[in-house]
């Protein structure tokens, strides 16, 4: 028998967690690692599983690897609280692993619901993510913003999309935007990147052209239009914060993070 454990790490996700866990109720095991939420995340999660671990926040990769260590199934499906597994995707996952495949992992396309619309271009879609893998064949690596999964062996691809309810309000989007650009700027500074002021001008322009023109963002209507401009702003803000870290706060590579 092929069994699947779902792992989710959470922090104050009361708005998402119910729909998220409902979409993976078919799994053999659900493991939630919560970083001491102060809202109703934990009680809601307890309605779906008795494996809710509360653990101090140590970083994305540390908390995810901790979740991995609790897994007792052969396969692991990792999803975020703002993601949903459709019944079609669930069926496909069950079928693929039942056949005891040669691959150690599977990736799937991720479709994002951004400010009320499914984004189908902009370089966001398909945006394949590796989310299903054989237990003990993968680890999460260290990266401040976009933690990744390192898999031993080959991986295949699933047909159905994973749904991503990323931002339902622009205020929330910008709140994340602000945090992530700070992380990203710190990382650039730690890597010894020099703040070149022109980056603040030209990199966003490049990002915008890429997303809106080459990746056909113009086909995504008003939301695509907004997303491309906001993403260009993201790039500009990242380099502006790098400039701030280095030129204003004299960040050096060895003081690791006094920047913000």
């Amino acid at each position: 028998m092929s069994t699947v454990s779902v792992i989710v790490i959470t922090y104050n996700e009361e708005r998402n967690i119910d729909a998220c866990l409902k979409s993976v109720q078919w799994a053999d095991e659900i493991i939630v690692v919560d970083s001491q939420s102060t809202d109703k995340t934990i009680p809601i999660a307890l309605q779906y599983t008795n494996k809710v671990y509360v653990k101090e926040w140590e970083g994305y990769s540390e908390n995810k690897n901790y979740a991995l260590r609790q897994v007792s199934s052969e396969w692991v499906l990792w999803i975020d609280a703002d993601e949903r597994v459709t019944p079609e995707l669930a069926e496909e996952i069950k079928q693929r692993i039942a056949g005891n495949p040669a691959e150690n992992g599977f990736e799937c396309a991720r479709r994002a619901f951004f400010l009320g619309k499914w984004i189908r271009h902009c370089g966001w879609y398909p945006g394949y993510v590796l989310r299903l893998f054989r237990h003990n064949s993968a680890q999460f690596n260290h990266h401040k913003v976009h933690e990744g999964l390192v898999l031993d062996g080959k991986h295949g691809r699933l047909k159905n999309d994973l749904l991503h309810f990323t931002d339902d309000s622009l205020e929330h989007y910008l709140w994340k935007f602000n945090r992530y650009t700070s992380f990203a700027a710190e990382e650039l500074a730690e890597r010894g990147k020099k703040p070149v002021f022109l980056n603040i001008l030209f990199r966003p322009l490049h990002a915008w052209l890429k997303m809106y023109i080459f990746k056909l963002g113009f086909l995504d209507g008003m939301q695509g239009f907004m997303l491309c401009f906001l993403s260009a702003g993201y790039v500009a803000m990242k380099y502006a914060k790098l400039w701030e870290n280095v030129k204003v706060n004299n960040f050096t590579q060895d003081d690791g993070g006094s920047g913000k």
Binding site: L115, G116, L170, L174, M222, M226, A236, M237
Partner: peptide, 26 residues
């Protein structure tokens, strides 16, 4: 430059937020 740029960016954000409200996106 940064200040002017941020003010412009936030102006864009402001109009986007108004658009979202007017079009009832949330």
């Amino acid at each position: 430059f940064l200040l002017s740029w941020i003010a412009a960016f936030l102006k864009m954000v402001l109009y986007m937020k108004i658009w979202l409200l007017q079009n009832n996106k949330k």
